[in-house]
Amino acid sequence: MTPALPALPGFDHLRVPGAEGVELSVATGGSGTPVVLLHGFPQTHLMWRHVAPLLAAGHTVICPDLRGYGASDKPAAADPDVYAKRTMAADIVSAAAALGHDRFALVGHDRGALVAFRAGLDHPETVTHLGILDVVPTLDMWNVLQGVSAAVGYHLFLMAQPPGLPETMIANSADAFFGSFLDAWAGDRAAIPDPVRSAYLRASAAAVPSIVADYRASAGVDADHDQADLDAGSQLAMPVTVVQQDWGARLGYDAAQVWQAWAPDLDHRLTRAGHFMAEEAPEEIAGAIRELLAR
């Protein structure tokens, strides 16, 4: 059974239909034009607990747990498409429609940002504005992880392996594995207090097979989808804001240039916050989102 997670204060918590019979757990609140916020790894919608209330003053804010994470359904990965970002993006479009929104702004962090990127490409008539926190697209991610610098992304290579060994290794040391990212990637560890950290660890430990399947898809079907769009010259049609750490300087590539190839209407920003920027610098992130929605 999926463990109970802390509630987002002041928000309604619902079960709504995603794609292919999957149900998502969603927190929603506020009023106004809709904006959907997608969490990253190893987190749940709770990562938006500071940003969501700031945005809810002027917008309807929708914070789902992605399929395979948190309190959302975790279907077995019968084939790679089950956790393809294309499928996960269809979840978000379906969930928003079930809540009465056929057009919405979409902001994602980490894994959620990859889902948001795919939604922007696959559903340009639905996604009005796109916000991306601290990633590059899947295909570009694999291209820039080279040499010893790729060690920072060791988990990507581990979870790309065939089913069996990664799941067993991670499940046998789940708290240590998932906790290591909460520690190593945080610019300010106090931004994820113990109750929230515990909630993330409980949720992740209960979702090892689906989390691995999500990452495994990025080494296969997701990269294939990105390559097909690149070959076709597809680009993001909506205004795009990217906020990230200066990974380009660390890993030797031009992150803004990478994003410009996909997003002609781009606002690319660097932050001094750590990877968990929505929790470490919520005013900054909420402000960037508001500016995006005003474009």
Rank of each mutant, 00 (worst) to 15 (best):
P3N: 05
L8H: 01
R15V: 01
V16R: 12
G18F: 05
V22G: 05
T28H: 05
G30S: 02
V36E: 00
V36R: 03
L38Q: 02
W48F: 01
P53E: 03
G58W: 00
V61T: 04
I62Y: 00
L66Q: 09
Y69V: 04
K74I: 00
A76P: 07
A77Q: 09
A77L: 10
A78E: 12
P80C: 12
V82D: 04
K85E: 04
T87S: 15
A90F: 03
D91C: 09
V93H: 05
A95E: 01
V107E: 01
H109Y: 11
A113E: 10
A113N: 02
F117R: 03
P124R: 11
L130G: 06
L139P: 08
D140T: 15
M141T: 15
N143F: 08
V144W: 12
Q146V: 14
Q146A: 14
V148A: 15
V148C: 00
H155I: 09
F157R: 13
P162F: 11
P166V: 09
E167T: 03
A171E: 13
S173I: 01
S173P: 00
D175S: 04
D183S: 13
A186Q: 12
V196H: 09
A199T: 01
S204R: 08
A206Y: 04
A217P: 08
A219N: 15
H225L: 06
H225T: 07
A228Q: 15
A228L: 11
G233Q: 08
S234N: 12
Q235D: 09
V240T: 15
T241P: 03
V242L: 11
W247L: 15
A249N: 14
A256Q: 14
W259K: 11
P264H: 11
D267K: 10
T271N: 07
R272D: 15
A273C: 09
H275E: 10
A281M: 09
G287Y: 06
R295W: 07
